[in-house]
Design a protein around this nucleic acid. Structure first.
Lengths: 181, 181
DNA sequence: GTCTATATGACGATAGAC
DNA sequence: GTCTATCGTCATATAGAC
């Protein structure tokens, strides 16, 4: 975010927050405006419609994804370790944008669904390159999907600590290492 | 469903359909009534409120889950084979109820989230019993979660054919067999 | 750039006829 | 058991002042 204090950016972050906390239903223009500290009219000056607001969020997700892929490719412990460890909700900027867009994807916004599918495809390609075997790569990305789904995407109360704890992830990665070897 | 033609059941199925196709936002009382072929007043005779409608759906999910666990425990090819193969969307009654409830879980209905968490816990227990190793069991259920998430829960366009095809599942199961052995 | 005020429509729910 | 009619509320979006 170039100018985090600008009203436009505050609005985008508020929209993200409300999607995460209350789902699409609660992320109304009124609520977003109140959270961002502007009036509804002020909000609609920056984003001419709710659709434009969503487009802004998708653009933000694209940018954050590119940054993440770069980090993943340069990760000291390797691509797989990076992917799995970042699959549990850690409240990073990417996490938050991803969860927010996931909320939109379920309510039949096709653009949101396509954006998520594209990101997943990107990850799968990187992992396939890293481990060689495409079936193993699929299994790894599916485990990542499962972790994400449980810890962040679905609002299913408290996720299994075995899945989200440092120790649980270590065990999982040891298991995956057996597949890659 | 005891009396599939009764208006009450038609309403419940219509609610499910609309949650799946259009998300929570589109599953309004008006839309559900129209789809079920009754008036809004007629709908509200059977379910006194939208909350009661949701409660009816959750009850239906509970019943279908019990049936599924029974089938899983008696599956000829084993528990793991059954779980993985039924993790891609196959349009069964359970699938549909599960997806519908998942839509509600994301928009902050705590009961829906708890229902899903309970089902997942149930599956994890059964798989842990079957394979012995709890870490392997976690990995298997996570792969199942990932498959579900991609093929049905998230509206992400066309899922990867490698994940949903018979052949793709066979490859995945062969990989899992290496972990269990 | 940001505000208030308002138009327009949809949603959930109630009342009461048949 | 199912209908029509209607109320109150809240959502998106517009118009126009400052």
């Amino acid at each position: 975010m170039p100018h985090p204090e600008s009203a436009r950016d505050r609005v985008l972050v508020a929209y993200e927050d409300l999607l995460i906390e209350t789902g699409e239903r609660g992320a109304t223009l009124d609520a977003v405006a109140a959270r961002a500290g502007v009036s509804k009219g002020g909000l609609l000056y920056h984003f001419g419609s709710k659709d434009a607001l969503t487009e802004g969020l998708l653009e933000r997700l694209r940018i954050l994804t590119e940054e993440d892929v770069t980090l993943m490719l340069g990760a000291p412990a390797g691509v797989v370790d990076y992917l799995i460890r970042t699959s549990v909700h850690a409240d990073t900027e990417l996490d938050r944008a991803l969860i927010a867009v996931a909320r939109l994807a379920q309510t039949s916004d096709p653009r949101a669904g396509e954006a998520l599918a594209g990101i997943r495809r990107r990850w799968l390609d990187v992992v396939t390159d890293a481990v060689g075997d495409p079936v193993v790569a699929r299994a790894i990305v599916l485990i990542s999907d499962g972790l994400y789904s449980n810890s962040a995407l679905m609002g299913m109360g408290t996720p299994d600590p075995a899945d989200t704890s440092e120790e649980g992830l270590d065990q999982l990665l040891a298991l995956i290492a057996r597949l890659v070897a």
